[in-house]
């Protein structure tokens, strides 16, 4: 089963990449852009019986490695 994990910095944690992108967008004239955050997207195949089991397994992976709970939270989506 294919799963997708989005890892993002928690609100309030500085995101220098996001800030740099936002600056660049502003200098390009996209002055309406704000709150830019750069996130990580991880996709993987998982050996699981069904979507629920898959999601549970991936959440466990996220807690053990894919995210750092001090600074990041995450969302899991089962694709197929």
């Amino acid at each position: 089963m294919r799963a997708r994990v989005i890892v993002r910095l928690k609100p309030g944690v500085l995101d220098p990449q996001g800030a740099a992108v936002e600056d660049a967008l502003h200098t390009l004239g996209f002055t309406g852009a704000s709150n830019v955050r750069v996130q990580k997207l991880i996709e993987l195949d998982v050996d699981a019986a069904d979507a629920d089991a898959c999601k549970l397994l991936v959440l466990e992976m996220a807690d053990q490695l894919l995210r750092n709970p001090v600074i990041e939270d995450c969302g899991v989506e089962v694709l197929q």
Binding site: V13, L14, P16, Q17, A20, N68, V70, I71
Partner: peptide
Amino acid sequence: PGALLRNRDG
């Protein structure tokens, strides 16, 4: 405790 993020100026 804590974490180390990318330098502010990237």
